[in-house]
């Protein structure tokens, strides 16, 4: 797509794109290049010289059981966050879509947690499940369940998943509701007249027609779980216990800034870079498909 009518000039447009290009070069491409470059070296302990190791950092990285475990953790975490937040959102959107009046009011009530930062969501859920003062953990104790996410790996994972999914429900709800409202009512009514009950209608008509929205949300939510949940993990578990909640992004941070292992952290950045590229390409494919529907 190109404009037919354009203005003349060469220096003016270059001047206009310059701010963005300069910032992109200085804060995006140069650091990304540095990450690739640094991933091929090991700095000496005093940071005075660098030793070329080729792909040594990567070999070391993938032979590290903690790093391999971090992949599994990230996969489990992302899938759980995506399923929980999309499941709850779809359920609520289906209910809201059945209302003739009031869907708008529920939308207002449900969308604003989008504005709550992941790190703040983390603090809220940490407070509820705190082992000493948490209300929910106290009532669980009454029921005879001894909640301790500081020691129990499964409970730690459960808590960061729920805290991450909680804030995301709004976003998914908004897109699901829009998708549902775009389905012509006549199609569903025709099926109802033919005697198809709610579950049959959902399975055979609503869900297939909703699939572009679902695919889109699937990709966007996985990207969210990969990169934007750092705040939740850092506030609630700091990656523990025994690295049970150390997702890849958290590991780049903890190895690079806490552990000061720059070569390994750079190599991890490169691996992430690779993963984001794949996710971005997938996202574009799906969005293109969404447009064609």
């Amino acid at each position: 797509m190109e404009k037919r009518v354009t203005f003349k000039g060469i220096w003016l447009p270059i001047l206009l794109v310059l701010p963005q290009i300069v910032i992109t070069a200085v804060f995006f491409f140069y650091p990304a290049g540095q990450a690739v470059w640094q991933s091929l070296f090991i700095p000496d302990p005093f940071g005075l010289s660098m030793q070329w190791v080729g792909l040594g950092n990567f070999e070391y990285l993938f032979s590290d059981p903690y790093y391999r475990a971090s992949f599994v953790t990230t996969a489990v975490f992302s899938i759980l966050v995506t399923v929980v937040s999309m499941g709850v959102a779809l359920y609520l959107a289906l209910l809201a879509d059945r209302l003739i009046k009031g869907a708008g009011a529920y939308r207002t009530l449900l969308i604003w947690p989008y504005a709550v930062a992941p790190a703040v969501a983390g603090v809220l859920w940490l407070f509820m499940f705190n082992t000493r003062v948490g209300v929910v953990s106290w009532y669980l104790g009454l029921l005879g369940y001894d909640w301790n996410h500081v020691l129990n790996e499964g409970e730690a994972m459960g808590l960061v998943v729920v805290a991450s999914a909680w804030g995301r429900i709004s976003y998914n709800f908004l897109f699901f509701l829009a998708g549902l409202q775009a389905i012509p009512k006549s199609v569903i009514e025709a099926a109802a007249i033919d005697g198809a009950h709610f579950w049959t209608r959902f399975r055979t008509i609503v869900f297939p027609l909703l699939s572009p929205t679902t695919f889109f949300l699937l990709v966007v939510n996985i990207i969210y779980a990969f990169f934007e949940t750092f705040g939740v993990i850092h506030t609630i578990t700091s990656g523990g216990p025994q690295q049970a909640t150390t997702i890849l992004v958290y590991k780049v941070f903890s190895d690079g800034f806490v552990g000061q292992d720059l070569g390994s952290s750079a190599a991890q950045s490169v691996v992430l870079l690779f993963l984001v590229s794949i996710l971005t390409v997938v996202q574009f494919k799906f969005i293109e498909r969404r447009v064609h529907y």
Binding site: Y30, Q34, A35, V252, F257, L262, S269
Partner: peptide, 8 residues
Amino acid sequence: EVRIVPTY
């Protein structure tokens, strides 16, 4: 998030 150390 993927370029934190060099950007820092």
